[in-house]
Write a protein that binds this DNA or RNA. Structure first.
Lengths: 192, 192
DNA sequence: CTACGATGAGACAAAGATGTCTCACGTGGG
DNA sequence: CCCACGTGAGACATCTTTGTCTCATCGTAG
């Protein structure tokens, strides 16, 4: 009856399970706990030993997604250099987490409740500040609000993630497609 | 035992039920058949008399969404005038269906199966042709593929629909936010 | 070797959604 | 008037997923 401390190996496995679940749920967001377990190469019982239930699993994935976004934001150094370059760096750094983001983006469970993770608001604030910096420096237009630009960034990341999974967009083109559309739009620039 | 032809009133109600379901599922994509019925002001039994099951309901909503998109495309006259103006018209015409589109966009059930509605491909083709026309006329840049631009249009429409429901974007700004970001991007134009 | 802990397999009940059925009511037309 | 039809309410079985449990097995540290 000495179930006190955490087992030694579970901490390592947990991350692996989380990654597997992210990869599977990105492709099939309605996957069963049994399917998640099989995808991770473990049994459903062990999966439940890691995560109390499906809700806990989704919450853990949410925390992982937030953490990866924040890490990407750190690496992108949004305060440095031109804002456009900062956006390009951010998109490049966030690509590995795009699939997970796309899954979370479509998981209405996370948004309907009144108690939603503060991490999203922290991210919104920081990304919104990036766009605001671009506006204040005169680099970005001011008729599109930072809030909408942030939302559009998420949307484009999710869209491109889906398109990549379907093979409609090459994985190597992801950073260009997202960043250049967000920054420059479809219209051709007169000045080269 | 003369259950042959369609009843006289059901055809009228069916459209109303469909609209109610679209409005509800836009807000709560996991709504129960019972909730859908209540939202339409009918009983679950009657709902089942209209749509054999949840799957049939979603398929009907899909058909409705496709039809509304095609109607919007007709009204937008994508062949006329500048391509940019055509895109603006398309976004404006498609706004009333944006919520439904956002719901369908997140309904993975529609995309995972091997047998998906041809209507989407027809729409993709026509919208893709619009962007291609812009590229050929020199109006649009050529480093973003029409396929990606089409995907981005869907993504931005869905994103803005969610943002509108959450109150982060005003409904009246929808056409501007979506079209101007898609066309011009976040960067400020040098030439006024 | 031995014991402990983690695991896999499976049984089990509970919960929720769904699909089907019956029955009573009410309304409108013949 | 009366009957047919659409409807609402609800009962019912079914199915799926989930959460919990037990038990046998296996690897490994002591």
């Amino acid at each position: 009856m000495s179930h006190v401390g955490y087992p030694c190996l579970m901490a390592l496995d947990r991350d692996h399970v989380l990654r597997s679940a992210a990869a599977l749920l990105t492709r099939k967001s309605t996957a069963t706990m049994d399917e998640v377990a099989k995808a991770a190469g473990i049994s459903r019982a062990t999966l439940h030993r890691h995560f109390a239930g499906r809700d806990a699993l989704v919450r853990a994935l949410e925390a992982l997604g937030i953490a990866e976004c924040e890490a990407a934001l750190e690496r992108a150094r949004p305060e440095e250099g031109s804002t456009a370059e900062a956006v390009r760096r951010l998109v490049r750094e966030i690509q590995p987490a795009a699939g997970l983001l796309a899954f979370l983006y479509g998981e209405s469970q996370l948004w309907e409740g009144d108690r939603q993770n503060d991490g999203w608001q922290r991210l919104d604030t920081r990304i919104g500040a990036l766009f605001q910096r671009g506006q204040q420096s005169g680099e970005f237009r001011i008729d599109l609000t930072p809030v909408w630009l942030t939302e559009a960034l998420y949307g484009l990341i999710a869209s491109c993630a889906w398109a990549t999974l379907d093979g409609r967009v090459a994985s190597r083109d992801f950073p260009t497609m997202v960043a250049e559309l967000l920054l420059g739009g479809a219209l051709r620039r007169e000045e080269s």
